[in-house]
Amino acid sequence: MASIDLNSDVGESFGRWTLGDDNAMFQSVSSANVACGFHAGDPTVIRTTCQQAAEAGVVIGAHVGYRDLAGFGRRFLDIDPLELADDVVYQIGALQALAATAGTSVTYVKPHGGLYNAIVKHTAQAQAVVDAVKSVDPTLPILGLPGSEVLRLAEAAGLRAVTEAFADRAYNPDGTLVSRTLPGAVLHDPAEVAEHVLRMATEQSVRAIDGSILNIRAESICVHGDSPGAVAMATAVKSALSDAGVSIGTFV
């Protein structure tokens, strides 16, 4: 039976502000990208999220990003690479400690938002992320977009590079994600999202926003937990994969 990892961004609440239904998402995914406090999340949210993931049998990864709470980490920051590396080390370390208190551990790293998009092509920042991960734990895989600088540099540094696709995001013809500032960038219809994922998992391809078909080989597929109707989309994806004989399981 074919197998694919489903991951979701979780732990993105902050104080009295709640975002997403993480517990419900844990019923459909195998990996949880836990916000580390720089773009979202606070210590209590992080610990609670780790505990809930562990109870659901879901592995956790460090969802590291720019230090940008106000912008939810989705804006590009022209930050010095050394400072960025320190920020990434800090975030991984914080999550490792809080995960330990919940009886679990960090098993991979996935950059978030603006940082994720920047290191597709921004070599200096991509190298900073790779250097940070390697300095903390060289056994931690890094998730990224196929063909991205960060995955190229991760492999060059001896780290495991894990290719990722997105269930609820539209693609440009060059394989990059359509900017969230443009119409149609985020998919909302559960049936459309399920079809999108099924093509990725069974045909290793995706339909770009212009209708062209791109080859895309992904070890993990992200279903965003903060999108409207996220739980319904994740449930539809899980059901479609099951019907097609594709099991859901972590890549680690």
Rank of each mutant, 00 (worst) to 15 (best):
P146D: 10
E203G: 07
A234K: 04
T107C: 11
E195H: 12
M25P: 06
S135E: 13
A94C: 14
I4M: 10
Y108A: 00
S8Y: 01
N172G: 08
I60H: 07
L143I: 14
G103T: 02
L115T: 01
D189Q: 06
L19D: 02
D174K: 06
D68T: 04
A240K: 10
I119T: 03
P141V: 02
L177A: 06
P111Q: 02
A170Y: 03
G175H: 04
L153P: 05
A240F: 07
D131K: 12
A85P: 07
V109A: 02
V58I: 09
I92G: 01
T181C: 10
T250Y: 09
V252K: 09
T176C: 06
P111D: 10
I60A: 01
M1D: 11
V129S: 05
I142L: 08
G113C: 08
I92L: 05
L241R: 07
R199M: 15
R169E: 06
L6R: 02
A100T: 12
H122R: 15
V120Q: 14
A100S: 11
V178L: 15
E195G: 14
S28Y: 15
D80C: 10
T181Q: 14
I92T: 11
L140I: 08
E164A: 08
A128W: 04
A240Q: 03
S220E: 04
V186H: 01
Q204D: 12
A56E: 05
L98C: 09
D137L: 10
H63C: 07
D86I: 13
G41Q: 11
L82R: 15
Q127S: 12
E164T: 00
G113E: 02
N117A: 08
A2Y: 13
T176P: 05
G229H: 05
D68R: 11
F166N: 06
P173W: 00
V88E: 04
H188K: 12
V237I: 11
E192C: 01
G229M: 05
A53W: 00
V59R: 13
N172D: 12
F251R: 01
A157Q: 00
D243R: 15
L140G: 11
D168P: 07
V45N: 05
S28H: 15
Y116D: 03
Q204A: 15
D137S: 09
S179A: 15
N215H: 14
T181V: 14
W17S: 07
V252T: 14
T107E: 14
G184C: 06
R75Y: 01
F72R: 07
R47F: 13
A24R: 11
L214R: 00
H188V: 12
I248L: 07
S28P: 08
A218M: 10
G113T: 04
L145H: 04
L95I: 09
E195M: 12
V178P: 02
D174Y: 00
G229A: 07
T181E: 14
P190D: 08
A100G: 13
L77W: 10
P173E: 06
A56Y: 03
Y108T: 05
V88C: 09
M200C: 08
F166M: 05
K110P: 00
V197C: 11
V64M: 04
I119W: 01
R74G: 03
V186T: 06
I119M: 14
G114V: 07
A157Y: 01
F76S: 13
N33W: 09
Q96W: 00
A154V: 03
W17V: 01
G175V: 05
A167T: 07
T202M: 14
